[in-house]
Design a protein around this nucleic acid. Structure first.
Length: 377
DNA sequence: AATTCGGGGTA
DNA sequence: TACCCAGAATT
């Protein structure tokens, strides 16, 4: 494996062109607030900078430090995270905050951070480098791409990680990188995000343009190679929205683990491959004896590994206590606390009755749009 | 090593 | 559409 290029031109480029981001503080290595760095890294897991920006500020406003987060009940954390996805991140964030408070502060080493829930190899290295100035290189999607191109690694991901990781770590053998570890790793992120992009990288602007083996060989567009991934399966759901005389909605707590774990949902029949008829789904209704009316149209939502299509039945319910595991909630609070798939289902109830009005782009289809895709038989 | 976890922006 | 995003945990 050849030596990685000099850190000096990358740091010089970073000093001129770095992105201005809410969690990015300027100061000497080790001066950053580890809570803020940690929160940003967790939010940024598989989530774009543009999405995280406003949510990060909102979250910090509500939970300004690790003690405030640790003291908060789970329901408040879940509602604040709603819509961001990968809800295990919120559960682990909450648990880790309590662990940090219990031990009297953040661990300041990679190994110590790695032991906290929700902190894997990447996040431990990122917090160690950015918040504590440790000489370690976190390997995210950006770094994988930059290193694979710099060294012209043709092996497909994810297998190529066994080559990319050690190669990336060798950057910290250089004095220039060790002097500014946090800046150096963020420079790698910025290079991957703005210059060494997945498609059509702007090699002419790259501080490493003369060091890059992929560019020299003209294969930068095809790197890193990736192994083919499995196709997404389809699922069908039928959900039941009950309103009490005060207009409140009956919601159900999902199990703490698994898909949308720990979040609220509109109760319904289990998702399966075949569509549900109202009659056969009735035993899964949250309250017995109600008169359910099926709404026109469907709400659809794609998760990472499955495409979900949901229909909605509605009923007026008498004033009654919520069944175990369920809760009555005002519509506004309900919408705020629900994950996106359920917000789309809820929008089906709030939307117009007329057909063909819902937008496909928003994940809601009227009867016409659904028929066009052949989903209504 | 392969799956299971969300959701949105982009070409 | 398909791909990608400052990945982690489980099997």
């Amino acid at each position: 494996m050849p030596d990685p290029p000099s850190a000096v031109p990358l740091l010089a480029w970073y000093d001129r062109h770095r992105r201005v981001l809410p969690w990015r503080v300027t100061g000497p290595p080790g001066s950053a607030d580890p809570y803020r760095i940690w929160l940003s890294e967790v939010m940024l897991q598989q989530t774009t900078v543009a999405t995280v920006g406003p949510r990060y500020d909102r979250f910090l406003g509500r939970f300004p430090d690790v003690a405030a987060l640790a003291a908060a009940p789970w329901e408040e954390v879940a509602a604040e995270w709603a819509g961001l996805g990968y809800y295990a991140r919120a559960r682990n964030l909450h648990a880790a905050a309590r662990a940090v408070v219990a031990r009297g502060g953040f661990p300041d080493t990679e190994e110590g951070l790695r032991a906290l829930p929700g902190i894997g190899a990447y996040t431990a290295a990122a917090v160690a480098a950015i918040a504590f100035g440790r000489p370690t290189v976190p390997v995210d999607g950006n770094v994988e791409r930059v290193v694979a191109r710099l060294l012209a690694i043709r092996d497909p991901l994810p297998g190529a990680r066994r080559l990319i990781g050690p190669a990336a770590g060798r950057f910290m053998e250089q004095e220039a990188a060790r002097t500014r570890p946090g800046d150096f790793v963020q420079a790698l992120f910025d290079l991957g995000a703005t210059i060494c992009t997945p498609r059509r990288p702007a090699c002419a602007l790259c501080p490493w343009r003369d060091d890059c083996r992929a560019r020299r060989e003209g294969i930068q567009d095809g790197l890193p190679a990736k192994s083919p991934k499995a196709a997404r399966g389809g699922r069908q759901g039928l959900h039941f929205l009950a309103r009490d005389p005060a207009g409140r909605l009956l919601l159900r707590h999902r199990p703490p683990e698994g898909l949308l774990g720990g979040m609220l949902e509109i109760p319904g029949a289990p998702w399966r491959e075949e569509p549900w008829e109202l009659e056969e789904a009735l035993p899964h209704a949250p309250l017995p004896g109600l008169s359910w009316t099926l709404r026109p149209g469907t709400a659809h939502h794609s998760f990472s590994h499955l495409d979900l299509e949901m229909r909605l039945a509605e009923a007026a319910a008498p004033d009654s206590p919520a069944p175990p595991g369920m809760t009555w909630m005002e519509p506004g609070a309900a919408r705020a606390a629900l994950p996106t798939a359920m917000r789309r289902l809820l929008a089906l109830a709030e939307g117009p009755l007329a057909e063909g009005v819902g937008g496909v782009a928003s994940g809601i289809s009227g009867a016409r749009g659904a028929r066009r895709r052949g989903t209504l038989g």
